[in-house]
């Protein structure tokens, strides 16, 4: 029984949250990796573009709520996301046309494009703060839990409860669907293959007649979809605060680099690697050991390797270690 309790404890506090957080990071990391692979620069505006997409989702959600539209048990935001995606795609194409295109046509070095993306980051950040403000926004409505801890305890008779939030299930479910569609698109369709070809060898892609403008446009469209959904899922699960999104850029970049930058599948798995490492290292295992060890050996401290305040240190360390020892990532991306 104690053993079961220990397992449930880990499921509840590590496995389910890490899977959710990992999915959210994975979407951001695929965004980073696609931009890096195809447009060839590190997009520092990633976090704030995700915040922008989330903000639009929130505004549309509020509008729907004000006119009385809801999805019942599901969050209204799900209904708002498609509209937000359309808006976000417009925003991405607008930024590309008026900012990035100029540097691409002039064949600027990647560092210059990265600096430009920092400019885009500041502007996007400012726009988000002007429109919705820097404060915390919660926009989750509908049924919060699928399984409540108390109900689980009553059902199983265990001491430990397993709580599963609907936002967690939605996040994992939507991520898997989205990522499956994306991989199907990249690996099986002609357009998707042409994007991979362009990322692999730009000159040869041009010689094969692949239209670079089309590839760039589709990349931004996918980026808009990923930014909105990734951001909105994070906001639904936790809360929306522009600064958190900016902060999340570190684990997102770490995930993309761990997976091998330019490699979407690597970025997807990298998201989970980072999420699980962060949560494994910052979780306090005291209760877990109380269950599995005899009473005499019970730990007196929290058995926490690192305080949760330092969770970014984990991504940062992974980033440094990967760059030092395996610069092309676990799944063979480009060498940075």
């Amino acid at each position: 029984m104690d053993f079961l309790n220990a397992i449930i404890l880990l499921l509840n506090y590590i496995f389910v949250p890490a899977l959710t957080y990992g999915s959210q990071l994975a979407l951001g990391a695929i965004f980073v990796t696609l931009i890096y692979g195809i447009l060839r620069f590190a997009n520092f505006a990633t976090g704030d573009m995700m915040a922008f997409g989330t903000m639009v989702t929130i505004l549309i959600t509020w509008y729907f709520q004000s006119i009385g539209i809801s999805l019942g048990v599901l969050p209204t935001a799900l209904l708002a996301i498609p509209f937000a995606i359309i808006f976000m795609i417009g925003y991405m194409l607008f930024i590309d046309k008026f900012v990035f295109r100029y540097y691409r046509v002039n064949k600027s070095p990647p560092v210059q494009l990265a600096m430009v993306s920092i400019g885009v980051m500041f502007v996007t950040q400012a726009v988000v703060r002007i429109i919705i403000g820097p404060a915390d926004q919660r926009f989750f409505d509908g049924e919060r839990f699928i399984i409540k801890a108390r109900e689980f305890k009553e059902m199983t008779g265990l001491n430990e409860g397993l709580a599963i939030k609907s936002s967690q299930v939605l996040t994992i479910f939507i991520t898997l669907i989205l990522v499956s569609i994306l991989f199907w698109f990249l690996n099986k369709t002609k357009t998707g293959k042409s994007m991979r070809a362009y990322s692999d060898n730009e000159d040869l892609a041009l010689l094969s007649g692949i239209d670079p403008k089309r590839v760039v446009m589709i990349t931004w469209i996918i980026a808009g979809i990923l930014a909105t959904i990734g951001g909105a899922l994070y906001g639904l699960d936790k809360s929306f605060k522009p600064f958190t999104y900016f902060n999340n850029m570190l684990p997102i970049f770490a995930a993309a680099i761990v997976g091998g930058i330019g490699n979407p599948f690597g970025a997807f798995l990298g998201g989970y690697v980072i999420a699980f490492s962060e949560i494994f290292i910052t979780y306090a295992y005291k209760k877990f050991f109380m269950y599995i060890l005899p009473e005499s050996m019970e730990p007196e401290t929290l058995v926490q390797l690192l305080s949760t305040d330092y969770k970014f240190a984990v991504s940062f360390s992974i980033l440094v270690i990967v760059l030092l020892y395996r610069p092309n990532g676990i799944f063979k991306g480009k060498v940075l």
Partner: peptide
């Protein structure tokens, strides 16, 4: 059609995908 001296294949793609890309047009 042109075959460059270096970097004349899509190294990260399969043989068949390379041929498909050649037929892009």
């Amino acid at each position: 059609s042109f075959v460059p001296q270096t970097k004349n294949v899509f190294a990260g793609m399969t043989v068949e995908e390379n041929l498909e890309m050649g037929a892009y047009l």
